[in-house]
Design a protein around this nucleic acid. Structure first.
Lengths: 389, 389
DNA sequence: CTGTTAGCGCATTCAC
DNA sequence: GTGAATGCGCTAACAG
């Protein structure tokens, strides 16, 4: 049906091997024949058969980028940065070009695994997992296993925006094994496997300093004089949610330990990293603590929802209540008032992940790099008002 | 290196053919052998070799989704919707599952073409092109050609959010042809090729009614009493930009033709669909027309930039100047004031595109469906102020 | 520099 | 229901 290498070879009056060589470019071919072949390719509108070529060469030009929510700019920015490192996609015929494809898991552990399977089937050159992981013992183990397997098959793995794989999720090197349900309840700080190198098979991690950023954010609020600070978290089973909340509590413990007592009262667990989660969360917080003077949100999107709820309740920002987000997504600078937040260099992190995925950058020592986050104090936070009511 | 079908066959004590059959599932196999095979698969941790299987079966489970800017929620929402229609990705071993991969063109025509080539190499099952196309005669022809070629190779093509392929970009059915630079400067309304069916090879289009929406938006402003309306467009070579501007002018022509005279004066061409484009555009507009009472933006993101610029100039929204966006992206409802905009049902459109790509929905008559857009009059538009200064 | 020869791993005919 | 053969289209040694 379709035109094949052989057709081109015939038309150009050369052998299939020669055609293959000019197409891949990485082999000396006489200028004259090259032109002849190229012309035949043009005339026949020949397009390489990817599967066949991948099979024969046992390589793939696919790089998978897994994201939790493609409609969320947080992931869009990272994915875009990863892709930008793949270089301008080559001209037809040029080789060596990687194709970054982004896979939307929707935050579901099953589809995360499924995409990984697909990518493994395609013998992907690399896989970049972005954003927070799910805090689930079972899934964590399954994921670690699949990732290690992929890595040992030659696929480069990069974690971007999530913590490194827990070392306890180890797997015996051997192939066949009956359901390794080894009950390794260590609990201790893991002794690092793989002496200074990445934990296991060259799985590289670019973690975000969520905890530190969150801590500084709370310190900012505290130093402004706030003592009644609500927190609308992200989905409760995510690593990012956990880290940011931890940072918050760390700041409280250090500077205002008396607030820790009824911290739960001041914490609402949002169901998602979205607007309505912030809206509902703020309402709930206000119900519980009418004299709230500040609200911390899981991220900027959630913060927007918080702002909307507050305004709908007749409260002014920041005069009555201060609000802060996280991530510094583009719109947060344009919100009104401008949103105080914690900046994560998403683009840089994504770009680095891309380079790492391509093997164009040497992995950080230990296989883990933590990117710094930066407090951006803007218009949505101010000192708390005097006594209300 | 990796474990193959043959390995599994040996371990299960059956032939490779049998293993293949249980794995693909679409063939009668005795229950006993099936279990045996499955067990061997488990034990060996076998994963199908995608390329090999694709080569042998000459099919692919890849669906490409091309977007102009993956960091823009406009595309994220569409892509996410497309992907949602691919169904929950199957369990390992299950077949028939399509894998939607999104490719970020960055709005570049070359990478659009390049991705298409890659997808063609992979013999993709379908390709969805989203968002506005580039208004370039040469590129349009090249794109149409490549799309038709893909379609005739069995790949389903869906255009989502851009106008249908121009019928003049036709190509002779035969294969070999020397640079079809046929100078078909028709100019007339194209006679529809392909009698009522899609123009050519089953290329389906889901267009957005940008023109109508834009027209209604301008009518809204006009009816509010505005007579000094600025417009910050998107990139000037995009179909979406053109359509929205046309709708605007259509409304002017109908209701306030006197404003058409110096329409150029009131129009600034933004370089991109981003925030800074809106910011700069608004400033420029203000320089040209200090007494501006309303600004229309290319989309919501641009509108946010416009708002920021206006505020920085000490102008209140909507008391001094009204602002409106387009698309109704999630954040526009949370802006302050809430943004008047035109809603496009991006999710529905994307989902439909996904179904069309899978062949799960019958194409609209003529191969083109236009989705309606809806004016959302919110807080950022109001009657113009009395004489200023 | 170019042609010949073998597979890559799997999905299918066909026989049995 | 299952096994044995054949070929998908291409790349990678080898020769020459």
């Amino acid at each position: 049906m379709a035109v094949t290498l052989a057709d081109v070879a015939t038309r150009a009056g050369v052998s299939a091997a020669t055609v293959s060589r000019v197409l891949s470019g990485n082999y000396p071919v006489a200028g004259a024949t090259r032109t002849r072949v190229m012309r035949a390719v043009e005339e026949l509108q020949y397009v390489v058969n990817g599967p066949a070529s991948a099979l024969a060469a046992s390589t793939s030009d696919l790089v998978g980028v897994l994201v939790n929510d493609i409609a969320d700019p947080f992931f869009g920015i990272i994915a875009s940065a990863v892709q930008s490192e793949m270089g301008t996609v080559g001209q037809s015929g040029a080789g060596g070009q990687k194709l970054a494809v982004v896979c939307n898991t929707g935050g579901s552990t099953e589809s995360e695994l499924s995409y990984l399977t697909h990518l493994q089937r395609q013998r992907a050159a690399a896989v970049v997992l972005t954003g927070s992981g799910v805090e689930d013992e079972k899934h964590g183990a399954a994921l670690a296993t699949r990732l290690r397997r992929l890595a040992s098959g030659g696929t480069r793995i990069v974690l971007c925006g999530r913590p490194p794989l827990a070392p306890e999720h180890q797997e015996p090197e051997g192939a066949a094994r009956e359901k390794a349900r080894a009950p390794k309840e260590d609990g201790q700080g893991g002794e690092s496997v793989g002496s200074g190198a990445d934990s296991g098979h060259g799985i590289v991690t670019i973690a975000f300093d969520n905890r530190g950023g969150s801590r500084r954010l709370t310190e900012h609020l505290l130093s402004l004089g706030h003592r009644s600070i609500g927190y609308v978290t992200g989905p409760s089973d995510r690593t990012t949610t956990r880290d940011r909340l931890e940072g918050h509590r760390l700041a409280l413990r250090a500077a205002a330990p008396e607030l820790l007592a009824d911290a739960d009262q001041f914490t609402v667990h949002g169901g998602a990293y979205d607007r309505s989660s912030g809206y509902d969360g703020a309402l709930e917080l206000l119900r519980r603590v009418p004299r709230l003077t500040a609200v911390l949100a899981a991220n900027d999107t959630v913060a927007l929802g918080v702002c909307a709820a507050l305004r709908d309740q007749g409260l002014r920002i920041p005069e009555d209540v201060s609000v802060a987000g996280f991530d510094d997504l583009p719109f947060s600078a344009d919100a009104s008032p401008t949103l105080t937040t914690v900046r994560i260099p998403l683009h840089d992190a994504g770009a680095r992940a891309g380079r790492l995925a391509l093997g164009r950058e040497t992995p950080p020592p230990g296989g883990v790099a933590t990117v710094r986050t930066e407090l951006l104090a803007r218009g949505s936070t101010a000192p708390p008002p005097g006594p209300r009511g």
